[in-house]
Amino acid sequence: MALLNFLFPPSLFITATSLASFTSLASAGLSEFRGKNLEYSKFFNVASKASDAEKSNKLTLPSRIAMATLYTPAFLAGVSSFAIFPEENLRLLLLKSAISIHFFKRVLESCFVHKYSGEMGVDTMITVLSSYFISSALMIFNQHLTITLPEPAIDLKSPGILLFLLGITGNFYHHLLLSKLRSQGPGKEYKIPKGGLFGVVVCPHYLFEVLIFWGFAFISQTLFSFAYAMGTTCYLLGRSYASRRWYLSKFDDFPRNVKSMIPFLF
């Protein structure tokens, strides 16, 4: 089978977890397309049909605390894996390092870069936190299961490292641009993003985040990592589509030629 030139042979466990990961993320992306958005960032309470009384009783946290919290377990999964799986294997070392670096960056950005306009529901925080933590832990564990297996015929580690570095750099740069749109202090101040790739897509930070996860997949070359990258792509396509729809409803002068996430295509 030609696919096995690129992947380690999947076990039943890897196949099952891969299917579950892709299905859950793809379903979340479809929900975003349909307008049922996870309630964080600009979508906090936008799509909710709950009554005002129900909303007032909803348990929430300040967005800065919630965002930093939801990335921390995945970061700890990456860091702790150095002690749990200390095998001298370059592929596993690269994957553990990339996951740890990515989520450490996200924690730092949540604390020191992003500016926030509201709160996040604890239920949403737990949903996203669980997804990142379980998927990161499974990606590392599934990689551990390949230690004794022969390497795939086609080695994708080098392009994976390049994708990861491009993704993490572009993601940080566009997060920095977004942070400069708002003044200091509280308030729901929104502007049309400019600079970088914002002139061609609404969510270039999502585009580069997708590259990060495909970097993981190329470094790892397990079925799970590819399923996770594909599922993440589906989810962020849906989220970016919802973001574009939100900007079009919010700003009369929003440029219609700006796509959602993929320049000139989508």
Rank of each mutant, 00 (worst) to 15 (best):
F33R: 02
R245I: 03
D52Q: 04
T222S: 11
L59M: 06
F33I: 04
S158C: 10
R106M: 12
P152W: 10
K96Y: 12
F44T: 04
A74Y: 02
T146H: 10
G121N: 06
L211C: 10
I147H: 14
G170V: 06
D253S: 15
S81D: 12
K115G: 12
S100F: 06
G29N: 07
L4N: 05
G187H: 09
F75D: 12
S21M: 05
P255R: 07
E109N: 12
L197D: 03
G187V: 11
A77D: 09
A28I: 00
L145G: 11
D253I: 12
E151A: 15
F218L: 13
F33E: 00
T169D: 07
T233K: 01
N5V: 09
Y241V: 05
F172N: 09
E88D: 15
S48M: 00
E87H: 13
L181E: 14
G160Q: 09
A66R: 00
A74Q: 05
Y206I: 03
G167T: 07
S27V: 05
F8P: 06
S110I: 05
H174Y: 07
F266C: 07
L177K: 09
G78K: 08
F216I: 03
L165A: 11
Y247A: 04
G185S: 12
S249R: 13
A137S: 15
F216L: 07
A98G: 10
R182H: 10
P186V: 10
A47I: 00
H114P: 09
N5T: 09
G121T: 02
L19R: 00
W214G: 06
P150G: 13
L76Q: 08
S135K: 01
P193T: 07
A77M: 13
S100A: 13
N257Y: 14
A77K: 07
S130R: 03
F85W: 15
I262Q: 04
G187Q: 08
L70N: 04
L237D: 01
F226P: 02
A20G: 07
L19E: 00
Y190E: 12
F213V: 03
L61S: 04
Q221K: 07
M67G: 02
R91N: 13
S80K: 09
L12K: 14
S243L: 07
S131P: 01
I65H: 10
T148F: 13
K115V: 14
S56P: 00
F213P: 00
T17P: 03
A74V: 05
P9E: 14
F104E: 11
A74T: 02
E39K: 00
S63Y: 03
D52R: 02
R245H: 09
T146I: 11
S131G: 06
G170K: 07
S179F: 08
T169C: 09
R245Y: 09
V128Q: 02
T15A: 13
A242W: 02
L237F: 11
V46P: 00
L181A: 10
R34M: 11
I262W: 04
L90Q: 15
R106D: 06
P263V: 02
L223A: 08
E151N: 14
A83I: 14
F226Y: 10
I134P: 06
E87Q: 15
F164M: 05
A50D: 00
S240R: 03
Y40E: 02
F75N: 07
L236S: 00
E119N: 05
H144S: 15
E109W: 12
